[in-house]
């Protein structure tokens, strides 16, 4: 009887691994399709030549593949994965399936940082620095906001405080953004709004590399705490009873989540709903045990944003929709379903 049970758990683990493999295959497919979608026509052979025999490709194809499509497709994967895993951990540490990576006020803070950079203008700085001022400002303010929330959380250590502090941050920075609109010319204002909306258009390979590097460092740190996080999803009481230092875990997670989210949005703006929807889907597919939940969330997030990117490049009934609009269109009904279904 014992041996038979053993087989059953093994098969559960195997099934989960197969799911991950399947998700990875789906991601590869999305990546491929993303690389093949765009205004210019590109044959499969063109694509592979450009990627692997760079010298042989024509200049035009090389530019399309390396300057336009590849950075875009990679950013979709990386930012999608980052937002998904950040959202998933926010949901875990706040024990709330409606939490998202922006719960700590990061989205409005990042928008404010970007707005500030646009308003201050860059006439004094060199051109190379100019390109990175906006992301740097966005990153700094995003991180700053979550550190403020963390500090508040230290004073009164419970989940409700963290959530409320995050809401307060959102209001603060949204308010500051509105104040800005009085002092800036319309052009800049539009720039600010567009940045918040989010877009993958400007992604470069260097930006991809930075996001990748951050994920490469942070995700293993998340995986290290897999079991503690799984215990936390059973409730703060249970986790504490099992000997987990819950507030220390929360702190560590908040820092990691903030860094991941901040770097994901500082280059592309605040694209919504990925961090809310991807964890839900991943949980449905693979369960809440974090050794598998984390990779699943990464993959699902990457797939979702890649798919949204493909859709944003494909005319639907003759109209091309911005990527942020697509994530919103999928996300809002999703959110409604989630709210209606929510047991907690």
């Amino acid at each position: 009887m014992s041996a038979a049970r053993n087989v059953l758990y093994r098969s559960v683990t195997t099934r989960k691994l197969l799911c991950l493999v399947g998700l990875f295959a789906l991601l590869a497919l999305c990546f491929y399709q993303n690389m093949m979608t765009g205004a210019s026509s590109l044959s499969v052979r063109d694509l592979f030549t450009a990627l692997f025999q760079a010298a042989a490709a024509t200049e035009k194809i090389h530019i399309i593949v390396w300057t336009v499509r590849l950075p875009n497709a990679l950013m979709a994967i990386l930012a999608g994965a980052g937002l998904a895993v950040a959202g998933m951990e926010m949901q875990t540490i706040l024990n709330n399936s409606l939490a998202s990576p922006y719960t700590l006020g990061i989205s409005s803070a990042a928008s404010f940082g970007a707005a500030l950079s646009l308003v201050l203008g860059y006439s004094v700085l060199s051109e190379t620095l100019q390109n990175y001022i906006t992301p740097i400002f966005a990153f700094v303010f995003a991180l700053g906001s979550s550190m403020l929330v963390y500090a508040v959380g230290k004073i009164k250590k419970d989940r409700a405080t963290i959530i409320l502090a995050g809401i307060a941050m959102n209001f603060l920075f949204t308010g500051l953004n509105s104040v800005f609109s009085y002092f800036v010319p319309d052009e800049t204002l539009r720039g600010i709004t567009n940045w918040s909306y989010g877009s993958l258009v400007g992604a470069t390979l260097l930006e991809d590399a930075i996001v990748f590097a951050v994920l490469l460092v942070c995700v293993p740190l998340l995986l290290r705490e897999s079991w503690k996080l799984t215990s936390l999803s059973m409730g703060e009481q249970t986790a504490k009873a099992l000997g987990v230092d819950v507030s220390k875990l929360r702190t560590k997670m908040m820092i990691l989540v903030s860094v991941i989210t901040a770097v994901s949005v500082c280059f592309i703006g605040t694209i919504g709903f990925i961090g809310l929807v991807a964890p839900y889907i991943a949980k449905r597919i693979i369960g809440q045990e974090q050794r598998f939940y984390i990779p699943a969330a990464l993959l699902v997030g990457a797939i979702l944003l890649s798919a949204a990117s493909i859709l944003s490049k494909t005319p639907i009934f003759g109209v091309t929709f911005a990527i942020a609009l697509i994530t919103n269109m999928i996300g809002i009904p999703f959110l409604l379903i989630l709210i209606l279904q929510n047991k907690r």
Binding site: Y9, V12, N95, T230, S233, M234, G235, K283, G287, Q288, E289, K343, R344
Partner: peptide, 8 residues
């Protein structure tokens, strides 16, 4: 509310 399995 967790969807962790009994085994886990």
């Amino acid at each position: 509310g967790a969807s962790v399995t009994v085994f886990e």
